[in-house]
Design a protein around this nucleic acid. Structure first.
Lengths: 143, 143
DNA sequence: ATAATAACCTATCGGAAAGGTTGGTTTATA
DNA sequence: TATAAACCAACCTTTCCGATAGGTTATTAT
């Protein structure tokens, strides 16, 4: 599995905020309730989004969170990178991976590189706004 | 990470066998040595490939393993499916996943379905023979 | 026959990461 | 000044990855 629960939840939080546009801030409690996710667990995820400057948080009464950019200007890749560390399909392509000594002769490396690029490209060109505009197509695709 | 060590090793085993064509059988020991992988660990992986009818095993002296089909007729997807259980990018798209109650209203489902299809397609159209013909391009792509 | 070879089978284990919980502290506003 | 809310740190449980160990069965060369 490429994307963990953390990443999926992060995306749902962002989508939720984008779907409820407001001048002010939306409290975590509301998001958690609407999405059916534990408040406390969501907290740890939202923290990453704030740290990554995708969300702004305001404390105290009337506080909460809001998007720092328009949904059109936020990519899915950006969101996932904050929660997933790496979107690489295999360990050898991960950022901190120790350089493989078989690199030169490895027959499978090009395969993985191609796959990595494919995934990256897809997520990089998918905006938060795109997520909103997708109607349910009743499309039942399963791998 | 989408593909585990098991999947990567499986691919290397298959490539190794394809690169050393012979009438007879190649013992596990040779493969393990050439690839620098523990014999015992490789054993557990190769077992899956035999069970999946991609390899044939012969016991006793002069025994070993060999491909049951031409490299052109074996896809990477096929190999990985035997070791990975699922190539789904997220848990909700996995075969045994309990149907999500938010399915109808989920804004992110189409994203994941699209990604899953993309990955699937890529691996399905990549043959074992393709792996052999890739020369090292010195291509240093990292995500 | 029998010794050597090699696939096959089963159980176990340490460590890391995922997924989640608990309890408390600080900041802002009504 | 009470309350709402973000923020912070520690911990815990389960699962799975990667690997090891030890033994059994089948085949062939001597």
């Amino acid at each position: 599995m490429l994307i963990s629960t953390k990443g999926r939840y992060a995306l749902r939080v962002m989508t939720d905020l984008a779907e409820h546009p407001t001048e002010g801030y939306i409290p975590l409690k509301d998001i958690a309730q609407r999405q059916g996710i534990s408040e406390k667990y969501l907290e740890s995820i939202i923290k990453l989004l704030v740290k990554g400057k995708l969300l702004a948080g305001l404390r105290g009464k009337g506080g909460g969170y809001k998007l720092m950019r328009a949904p059109e200007a936020i990519t899915v890749a950006e969101i996932l990178r904050l929660t997933e560390e790496s979107l690489a399909p295999v360990a050898c392509l991960e950022p901190g991976a120790s350089s493989c000594e078989r690199k030169g002769e490895c027959r499978t490396l090009p395969l993985w590189q191609g796959l990595g690029k494919l995934i990256d490209n897809y997520l990089e060109n998918y905006s938060l706004a795109d997520l909103l505009h997708t109607d349910d197509q009743g499309y039942d695709y399963v791998i």
